[in-house]
Structures are given as C-alpha cells and as structure tokens.
Nucleic acid binder design. Structure first.
Length: 487
RNA sequence: GGCGAUAUCGUCUAAAGGUUAGGACGGAGCCCUCUCAAGGCUCAAAUCCGGGUUCGAGUCCCGGUAUCGCUACCA
C-alpha cells in the first residue's frame, strides 16, 4: 500500500449560505494542518442538493476564504461536475451486492419521520422506522419493478451484525454496532448522489489522508467507513473538531448576530487577528500563549491540541485580539488596511500615498492605540482625515458647558493664529498662558478644544492632535466651533 | 424515544494521579493622565453531582444530571 508521503486535506463547503465562522474555522484548521505538515489543501464545493443550492453563493465563500488568507492548493472542484463518478460507484456497489434499489417513495419517508419527531410526550415511544423492505425484494419482484420503470433510489445494505471502528485523531478510537446503522441512501431517485456517497467517492479519488471536519459528522462517520470498505479503499484518518456555539449554547446561527466572515471583514477586523482568534477557539498550543501570528500558528498547530468541547463564540475576545493586532502590527503592515478602510468610506486621498505618506503613517500611529476596529479610523477618527465631521453629543454635553468657553476659544484661535512656529511646545505654551491669564483651568480649555477640533472626547493628546491637523485647520475649526457652541 | 459525545472561573483554556488549580477575555479597584484608550499593579471568579479505585483524583472506573450531535432521497 502506497500512501502520499505528505498529507492531503480538504475543506468542502456546500453553497447553501455564506461562509460562516464555523466553516471558516474548519477551513483554517485544515489549512494550518496542511501548512504545518507541508501537505496539500484542497477546496471542494459540495453542490449536490439542487433544492438548496445557490451557485451565486460560491464566489462569496471563495472571497471569504481569500480574506481569511486560507489559500487552497487544488480546486475548487465542484461535485455537480463529477456526477458520473458517483453513479459509477453506486452501480459498482449495486453489482457487488453492497447496495440495493429502493422503491419506497420519498414522500412516504419524510411523512413517517415527521410523525416520529412530533411524537407526543405522553406516549413518546414511537417505534424506530423499520429497515427498508426493498432490501428483501425477490429478484422477480425487482425485475417487474424495473420493467414498470418505477423510480428508485439506491440504498446501502448496511451489515446487520458486527461492529465498525475507526480512529479519530481528536476523539480517539471509535466503535459502533452495525445494527445501529440504517440502510442509508447513496443515490437519490433523481440520479444525484447523497452526501454520504459523494463525500466518500471524492475523498478516495482525491486521495485525502486526513478528514478534518465538524463534530456534527462524527455520528455519520461509521457509514462512510463502511463505504470505504465496500469500495475497497483504506479509510483516512478522521479528526472531528468541536462545534462553535452562540452565547446561549445553541449552534451558532444568524440569531446570534454576525456569523458570516464577510461581515467581520466589513466591520473592520484584521484577517490575521480573526485567524488568531479562530485558531484558539477549539485549539490550544498547550500553554499560555495567545498572541500567535500566523507563522507561529502554522509551526505550532497539531491535531493533538484540538479540544473535544464545543466552544462559545466570544465576540468581545475577538475584538480584543483585533485591538492587539492594531497595536502590535508594524505600521507598514497596518497602513494598507487603513487605506482600504478609508477608501471604502470615501475619505481616502491619493496624496497620502505620495508626498504626505509620512504624515499619514504618523497620524495612523497616533490614532491606533485607541482603536479596536479598522472602521474606527473612519468613524470616530474621521476628523483626522476629513473636514466634514460633526460634534459628538455626549462630548459637547460634557466639555462644552462652561459659559466662558466661547470667549476663551475665540481668544485661543487668535493666539494660535499668531504663533510664528507650529510645534508641540508652542501650542502647549500658548494655551496654558491663555488659561492662566483668563483664570481658567488648562484642562477645561484643553478638553473643550479637543471637541472643537475633532468633534469627540476620544482622541490623542491635544497638542499631538494639533500638530497632525496643522495650524490652519486648527484655527479655522476653532472658529467654526464658535457657531456650533452658540447653537 | 434510540445511539453517541462532552463536562475546570461568566467565556476561551492550562494543569500528560502529587501545584496555594495557572493564564487570557470580560468585571471591580488602583497607578498613569488634558479626554479616551493603551500600559502597569491588585482583587473577585471554576474542577456538574454521587459513589468507587488509590497513600493521594480535576485527571482513572461506574451511576446520575446537563448540554450538544446524529437518528433526511440536507450537508
């Protein structure tokens, strides 16, 4: 038996929605594992459910993965373009006797199941659905059904005795009694494969060595192992990762707020911060380290560090990670993200890429200690990039209430305007001298001035702020504030 | 209902039978301070319950409970 020396893994989303954080983490784990091992990461689109499929969603999923920095080495493959393979496999199983045609109607089936689901609590003992009777059909009966042209699905003839086992890299060795496994459908009457069939056929064909996927697939794995055996292929190593839950401990869904990675991108999260956060949800390096840049994640990642417990998605901690990256990223790494954010919000000016490059870098650096999201640069820090900003109501209420302010600010504007040199100490001195002469506290004037020139209470130290804004802006904004103050 | 998995601060986790059960987020407080952050320091906060095994159990075993998953011609 020859195996690829390097692992081959895959991420296989179905285009029934956007890329949600659970899928993103599964993709990330696969990718980290592949990169750590020097293996291959394959992308496969599982679009065999024509009812729920939304082909237009595929691009969004790819975009989400690209944003996350999870790059695939092969693919994307589409199952909808590989249907012949699944049919051939189903035929093969039919011929070998591992599968049989089933003439039960799909309508009957769902009806029966719904009844079981809705069973009254008083008499909740509804018998488990009986094994499919078609399995016992005589050859003659099958012949006649075939001649009638009756529609049929192909079901797997699950063994009635014995047990199936497999190895899970996270949950350990597993064994399931075959009697627990029903005669599941392989090929629908429409000729399209079910998940159980297509996933196994593809994983064999693509020579997948490790299947890393959500723990919701753990219970179905024995069926797939049975299929590997029936198709005479060695099963891969499985690694089921725990699920991501919402704050109420139910499976993460739209009800819990943003679950699409695209939304997090829009909100102003940095991909690397998001990656770091996601990697640590259900995986640990085995020690206290939390701030792990992507190269470190790759070198540290191991399936043995994957948790068995479902985890709750904690947005607050995600924001903390983001603020950490905002603080710690080398400024030249951060700048492109801020640029993109400003472009998105229509605040970007091309001069910041050229002659005012240094000014831009300095301003971003000044702002970033108090940012948590990239979008902060275009929201509360807007006044640093545009003259078009408003005055925050809370800031006005807090720092603009003193009756002497109109007079003080007018005088300050004049004093600053008269300054021969525009630097930190000159501004500082001018303001404090004025405050002293007028018998006002410097703090009063400083805080009121901050609101006047940037519209917020939240901003860098005042004189730093004055420097990056420049003299003419500061003076004109002070004068402009006089009108707002009067209003 | 059946089958299975899981269970350490509110949350994410560390502790490969022996620690005052550690760290981080969040919370509280202090320092710093021109605002807001950042940063530093301090505090509160956990082994689901009950039985075993062992000199010794968060760790191993059994039972209970809770939660989650599967039980589709969804994936």
């Amino acid at each position: 038996m020859t195996l690829d020396p390097k692992p081959r893994v895959r991420f296989a989303p179905s285009p029934t929605g956007y890329l949600h954080v659970g899928g993103a983490r599964t993709a990330l784990f696969n990718w980290l594992f592949a990169r750590h091992e020097g293996g291959t990461f394959i992308l496969r689109i599982e679009d065999t459910d024509v009812e729920r499929n939304r082909p237009e969603l595929v691009e969004g999923i790819l975009e989400g993965l690209r944003w996350l920095g999870v790059e695939w080495d092969e693919g994307p493959y589409f199952q909808s373009q590989r249907l012949e393979m699944y049919r051939a496999a189903a035929e093969k199983l039919l011929k070998s006797g591992a599968a049989f045609p089933c003439y039960c109607s799909a309508v009957q089936y769902t009806g029966a199941d719904a009844a079981v689901e809705e069973g009254e609590e008083g008499e909740g003992k509804v018998a488990r659905s009986a094994p499919c009777p078609c399995r016992e059909l005589t050859p003659a009966k099958r012949e006649s059904k075939m001649r009638e042209g009756a529609p049929y699905a192909i079901r797997f003839a699950a063994p009635r005795a014995g047990a199936t086992h497999f190895e899970d890299a996270v949950f350990g060795p597993r064994e399931v009694q075959n009697g627990e496994i029903e005669d599941f459908v392989l090929l629908r009457s429409s000729g399209l494969p079910t998940y159980q069939l297509s996933v196994v056929v593809d994983d064999i064909d693509m020579r997948i060595s490790h299947i890393i996927r959500g723990a919701d697939h753990l219970s179905n794995t024995p069926k797939q192992v049975l299929l590997y055996h029936a198709l005479a292929a060695p099963p891969p190593i499985f690694a089921h990762v725990p699920l991501i839950l919402g704050p109420d401990r139910t499976r993460l869904s739209k009800r819990h707020g943003a679950t699409s990675v695209g939304l997090y991108a829009q909100e102003g999260f940095l991909p690397e911060a998001f990656r770091n956060f996601l990697a640590l949800l259900g995986w640990s390096a085995g020690n206290d380290e939390e701030f792990l840049r992507t190269s470190e994640l790759i070198s540290r990642f191991s399936l043995s560090g994957v948790s068995r417990t479902n985890g709750i998605f904690d947005r607050t901690k995600l924001e903390w990670f983001n603020s950490q990256y905002l603080q710690k990223l080398p400024i030249e790494d951060l700048l492109p993200y801020v640029k993109a954010e400003l472009q998105r919000s229509g605040l970007w000016q091309s001069s910041w890429d050229n002659e005012q490059r240094e000014w831009f870098a300095h301003t971003v650096d000044l702002l970033r200690p108090r940012t948590r999201l990239l979008s902060d640069f275009s929201t509360w820090a807007r006044a640093f990039f545009s003259d078009d900003f408003d005055y925050d109501a809370d800031a006005r209420a807090k720092f603009w209430k003193d009756a002497k302010l109109p007079e003080l600010l007018a005088k300050l504007a004049d004093a600053l305007d008269a300054l021969p040199e525009w630097n930190h100490d000159a501004c500082d001195h001018a303001l404090r001298t004025l405050a002293a002469a007028e018998g006002a506290k410097a703090g009063l004037l400083i805080n009121a001035t901050r609101v006047a020139i940037v519209g917020r209470a939240v901003a860098p130290p005042l004189f730093e702020t004055m420097l990056v804004l420049g003299k003419s802006r500061v003076v004109s904004r002070l004068r402009r504030a006089l009108t707002a103050l009067a209003a």
